[in-house]
Simulated assay, not measured.
Amino acid sequence: MTATPVQTAATIVGVVFLAVGVLGFIPGITSDFDTMEFAGHESEAMLLGIFQVSILHNIVHLLFGLAGLALARSAAGARNYLIWGGAIYALLWLYGLVVDEQSDANFVPLNNADDWLHFVLAAGMILLGLLLSRTPRPGKAA
């Protein structure tokens, strides 16, 4: 069976999330690795020296990647993964904008770079899910 474009996109997004999750646990790729906390804004570990991460943050990336690979097995699952996953990232973006970075509410943790990456992920995933799962109208060429 040939994968649809939306399935291919969900697979790629899932693989990227898995890679990011793994990279977050590699010293050198993650700077200040020795300061990594399980959760909370106290973690000073920075993936690629830019994105604040914690053990929980990396686990979330790994789980998001596994979900993408599992749901990419069907076109409907891939579409749902991209759209609803994008919606989750939109909420995470909004959360990151309103929560004080030094507050205990910043449990993931998130910094400004994370916030804007979450916005790009939200927009990209939702657009991929909507655009790649469109079906041509009857009588129209594909």
Rank of each mutant, 00 (worst) to 15 (best):
V60H: 00
S74N: 08
L48M: 15
V20G: 00
A87K: 00
D104K: 13
V99Y: 07
F38P: 08
L18T: 02
F107E: 12
T135Y: 09
R137V: 15
I55S: 09
V120M: 11
P136V: 09
F25T: 07
L121I: 06
V16C: 10
A78Y: 00
A142V: 11
A75D: 03
R79P: 00
G24N: 01
M46V: 09
E101H: 05
V98R: 15
S43L: 12
L48G: 11
V60M: 01
V16I: 15
I126T: 08
M36K: 14
N112I: 14
P136G: 10
V6S: 05
G68V: 02
L48D: 15
I83C: 03
T2N: 13
I88N: 04
R73T: 00
P27F: 13
I88C: 06
V98Y: 12
V15F: 07
I26Y: 08
V6Y: 00
N80A: 12
S54I: 06
M46C: 08
T4L: 06
S74W: 03
A10M: 03
M1Q: 12
D104A: 12
Y89M: 09
L91C: 10
A39D: 13
M125T: 10
A87F: 02
Q102C: 10
W116F: 12
R79H: 04
N111M: 05
A75Q: 02
Y89L: 08
V13I: 14
F51D: 15
S74Q: 08
T4Q: 13
A113I: 10
F17C: 09
N80D: 14
S43Q: 11
L117S: 06
S133P: 10
I59S: 03
H118Y: 03
A142S: 15
I83M: 08
M36Q: 14
L117D: 03
I88V: 13
F51E: 08
H41W: 13
D32Y: 12
Q52M: 11
H118V: 02
L91I: 11
L121W: 02
H118E: 02
G139P: 05
I12F: 09
T8W: 07
L69G: 04
I126Y: 04
L82S: 01
G40N: 12
T11G: 08
T4F: 01
M36S: 04
G65N: 01
V22M: 06
G40M: 10
L130H: 11
T35V: 06
L117R: 03
F119E: 05
T35C: 04
I83W: 04
V53T: 11
